[in-house]
Write a protein that binds this DNA or RNA. Sequence first.
DNA 1: CGTTACATACACCGTCCTGTGTACTTACGG
DNA 2: CCGTAAGTACACAGGACGGTGTATGTAACG
Lengths: 199, 199
Amino acid sequence: MTELEKGPQGRRRGRGARERILGASRQLFRAQGINRTGMDQLCAVAQVSKRTAYQHFAGKDELVAEYLRRFDPDAMSAVFDRTDLTPRERLLAAFEVPASGTQELTPMCPYIAAAVELHDPEHPASQYARDYKQVIAARLAETAREAGAADPEQLGEQLALLLDGAAARTRVLNSESFPTAAAIAAVLIDNAIPATAQR
Amino acid sequence: MTELEKGPQGRRRGRGARERILGASRQLFRAQGINRTGMDQLCAVAQVSKRTAYQHFAGKDELVAEYLRRFDPDAMSAVFDRTDLTPRERLLAAFEVPASGTQELTPMCPYIAAAVELHDPEHPASQYARDYKQVIAARLAETAREAGAADPEQLGEQLALLLDGAAARTRVLNSESFPTAAAIAAVLIDNAIPATAQR
DNA sequence: CGTTACATACACCGTCCTGTGTACTTACGG
DNA sequence: CCGTAAGTACACAGGACGGTGTATGTAACG
């Protein structure tokens, strides 16, 4: 399952090596973690020769960084760019569990996972993870401002912390924690928006 | 620095091998992570021969599990067993940054770090991490009950999520997040305790 | 057609890792 | 004082890992 599109014949390969490598990265880094995924296995899944992989990426570190960059390049625009919701509803929508019908857990936020696994704040991927987290906090703050929060920066940082807490806790406990985070978020949002701004 | 107590002469070693191994684990797993710490290096720091290490621990996995078990065996009793504080104050004290005068960050919660690094929910250390997190949530819930919270279980789970969020976010952003978590905790606690129970 | 950029197969290097085998030394306790 | 348990030194197996060298193939495009 999750076979990663395969051509008519068993033989596929051919031209799109870079994309196939990044696809395999998403699959394997999520399923096994970064450190436990060797380049050999990754190339096998991607149906790409090892040589080709190293012609596209200077090393595994660069591949990991690119994997993170590709993961959510527009920073949860599926939530923040929704025009059918009020700002307040958008803030709450950020905590909705994406998993639809399946029974599987929300996967660990890959940015946190990478920062922990790589364990080096100077690693390009760690730096990007930091940037991403700050962008998300900024977008939350911006939306909080639109919602009329008294201190939007603070509310943004608080909601960002809730997202990370839910991600970490879901991973450690092996059970969904986003509903708890959503409940907290509701309290914080109502507390942060002055009564005069609510409708 | 953090030299790990050294005897009068440079030669130390001798009898307390097991404890020295666990001491070195604490030091190195924290500083470098579990996967990036080899048994060779660990034995060198512990001043223990590799053979001795494997006579005390069946393998690295068992050592990691024991490292976690030894880390905080009484589940934050320094916070929860304080008799000089009201239950409400104890709940807030859980978010105080332990670092006193130093400028270093709160280190990543080793239980989350282990669960992410090992990446296997069946690993003994991952199971213990899960247990530990549940114990902490239970102690928070118990304290919440003493403080008169309307739904102590829920408040306990919420505060536990805040702790994990602060830990994860501190690690990713490389800047202290516990104050933010403490601010949220204060809001949640005041919201959860009925006015009649407050004083 | 021929050029060129992309991809492949496959062997291989050096390094690190967990873990073991063996033979030797030290120190405590009865 | 001797037996036993604890620790030591050191080499090495066996595998995974990241990464490279080389020579070959092939599809697209001018």
